[in-house]
């Protein structure tokens, strides 16, 4: 399977409101206009509840905007069917979550293989690729280990390996170091930076930690569902 090229992502007046049992709609994102060129490393900062995760979910097609339009390489993705959006996520996006979200009944190798199975990667190819990815994240020898037998740092490494399984062009990391100690956090960030650079992928990293955000080349800050600043390093 050829690696999909990193998409250029555009958000045009994107809003997202939630109702979720409340009588009045709660705006999580308010008419955001934003562009992420392919291959960029962007951090998204801001206090809790400012809309960082909502923004990431919309970019990663986990959610749909209430209004506005999201485009990948100039193509609107809001009108795609659920199946098409799932296909784009499967082949084009790698997610790394704060709480790892590994499947507890699968081993490390099976967790990494899962997206490849869904993408119909041949058995031999996915077994080899899963072994290579686990070795790349420093987990050689832990292939048959279940998540509950791993440390937090190791679980997040498996999650990174899983995110890279289908060689996505877009990596989305939501507080990837939020539940890790300093040493493991540093290692995970270094790993993400390295794989992004090696694969020339776009990396959007959501964090409320300024130290973590500083590793990116472009820094976006959010406030009350809006982008309050967008600074690109020279």
């Amino acid at each position: 399977m050829n690696r999909p090229a990193a998409p250029a992502i555009e958000l045009a007046r994107v809003s997202r409101t939630y109702r979720a049992g409340r009588p009045e709609a709660v705006p999580a994102l308010r008419e955001v206009d934003w562009t992420i060129p392919a291959g960029e490393f962007v951090s998204v900062e801001g206090p809790s509840g400012c809309g960082k995760t909502t923004l990431l979910n919309l970019i990663g097609l986990l959610d749909a905007p209430t209004s506005g339009e999201i485009r990948w390489d100039g193509v609107p993705v809001g009108s795609r069917t659920d199946r098409e959006r799932a296909r784009l996520r499967l082949e084009g996006v790698g997610f790394v979550f704060q709480r790892f979200y590994l499947l507890p009944t699968l081993t490390a190798r099976e967790n990494v293989e899962l997206p490849m199975r869904a993408a119909r990667v041949p058995r031999g190819e996915r077994t080899r690729r899963a072994a290579d990815l686990l070795a790349e994240v420093g987990l050689r020898g832990k292939e048959a280990t279940f998540p509950h037998q791993l440390s937090g740092g190791e679980e997040q490494r498996v999650a990174v390996a899983r995110a890279l399984a289908n060689r996505p062009g877009l990596l989305l990391a939501d507080e990837p170091t939020g539940e890790l100690d300093t040493t493991n956090a540093g290692a995970i960030l270094a790993l993400l930076e390295r794989v992004r650079a090696d694969r020339d992928a776009t990396l959007v990293l959501v964090t409320h930690n300024p130290e973590v955000a500083r590793r990116a080349r472009r820094h976006v800050t959010m406030q009350d569902g809006r982008i309050s600043s967008d600074v690109r390093e020279a």
């Binding site: 199946r83 799932a86 996520r89 082949e91 997610f95 499947l103 899983r162």
Partner: peptide, 8 residues
């Protein structure tokens, strides 16, 4: 599973 893009 659905977030990873596994089909319905």
């Amino acid at each position: 599973r659905r977030a990873l893009g596994l089909p319905r």
